[in-house]
Write a protein that binds this DNA or RNA. Structure first.
Length: 321
DNA sequence: GCAGATTTGGTCGACCGATT
DNA sequence: AATCGGTCGACCAAATCTGC
């Protein structure tokens, strides 16, 4: 985009004679107001051009002029921390934008989407660096920022890779994301084998890596008895953190198997973890996690003897009958 | 059939939380 | 503090796929 086209200005001759009816007065007022606005915009545009020419990298931009990157990377998340930080200390790090390739006078974010969102909410002007970038350079900048921050979860990175795949060859994606071709292949395969709605329902699941997502993908493909999307969307699971929801889902989909001597996770049908069961030839050990099920632990402790006696009494009655 | 691209299976060291 | 087990990302190599 030519910076000459930064703003499309309406040329109005201020000396043009005008009639002075009431409605026309209103119109004149509107035109004058528009002219003032346009002059102000022209002044801002000139200022931007001047500062760019002077090599001043960081400028203040109206957030309304900025659009997100054409490739989304992050799932919607909490920006309260960022909001508080910007409110207290101002915007410390500028965002990177490029002139919008199709819309004159507008910009597109290469990185800094969360900062932009926070600043929009605060109603402030955003500090930005403007660079002319090709599509490839934009996604590489976006990918490099994500890697530096290291706070995109595995599944967010995988989805970012999948979105890049729609437009770019693999070498661009591996370069943008700093992953090797094997890793990229696995990321794409995992995204392809999981229903999109399931990933949305689980959320970013930070701390959950490739092996765990691969395990989930395998379970989802093998399991015809459960609806994993409905499970993940259940009220009980939605009350959990994204990471816990992921773990609960794995537990719910895993086939139950009682193997002697090996601990078995004790969980509810929806996947809530209660504790462990351990069996051997001579004994059965049930461990209840008090953090997860304090009331159930207290119930067991109080009533297990009564349960045993009740059971024994029932068996005696059956034998006598 | 061949070469290059992609997928898959496996290993490695680093890291983290739980346990001793 | 030391140890252990589980999980992570990164990497390598072999198998498989794809286009010519």
């Amino acid at each position: 985009m030519s910076r000459k086209n930064l703003l499309n200005l309406i040329q109005v001759d201020a000396d043009m004679p005008v009639k002075t009816t009431a409605s026309d007065n209103k119109l004149v007022g509107q035109v004058a107001s528009t002219m003032r606005e346009e002059k102000a915009r022209q002044a801002r545009a000139d200022d931007i051009e001047r500062r760019l020419a002077e090599g001043q990298a960081v400028i203040d931009l109206d957030t309304a002029l900025i659009e997100p990157s054409f490739v989304r990377d992050r799932m919607p998340g909490d920006i309260n921390g960022l909001l508080a930080s910007i409110r207290e200390q101002g915007q410390q790090v500028p965002i990177l934008v490029r002139p919008h390739p199709e819309k004159s006078g507008r910009y597109q974010v290469a990185f800094g989407h969360r900062r932009l969102r926070a600043i929009q909410e605060l109603g402030l002007q955003v500090k930005a660096v403007i660079r002319t970038l090709t599509d490839e350079e934009l996604v590489i900048a976006q990918g490099q920022e994500n890697n530096e921050r290291e706070d995109l979860s595995y599944i967010e990175k995988s989805r970012f890779a999948q979105r890049l795949k729609e437009r770019f060859p693999r070498e661009v994606i591996t370069s943008a994301m700093s992953v090797d071709k094997a890793e990229l292949s696995r990321m794409l395969s995992i995204i392809d084998s999981l229903p999109s709605g399931l990933i949305d329902a689980i959320g970013p699941a930070s701390g959950i890596g490739r092996r765990s997502w691969q395990e989930l993908a395998d379970l989802v493909q093998k399991d015809a008895n459960h609806d994993p999307v409905a499970l993940a969307q259940s009220e009980e699971m939605q009350a959990m953190s994204s990471q816990d929801r992921f773990k609960a889902l794995i537990l719910a989909l895993k086939p139950r198997r009682i193997v002697r001597g090996l601990p078995e996770v004790l969980s509810t049908s929806s996947g809530q973890r209660l504790g462990h069961v351990k069996q051997s030839k001579t004994k059965l050990e049930i461990t209840v996690d008090r953090k997860e099920a304090a009331e159930f632990a207290a119930f067991l402790l109080n009533d297990v003897v009564a349960l045993f006696e009740e059971r024994r009494a029932n068996n005696v009655q059956k034998k006598e009958a």
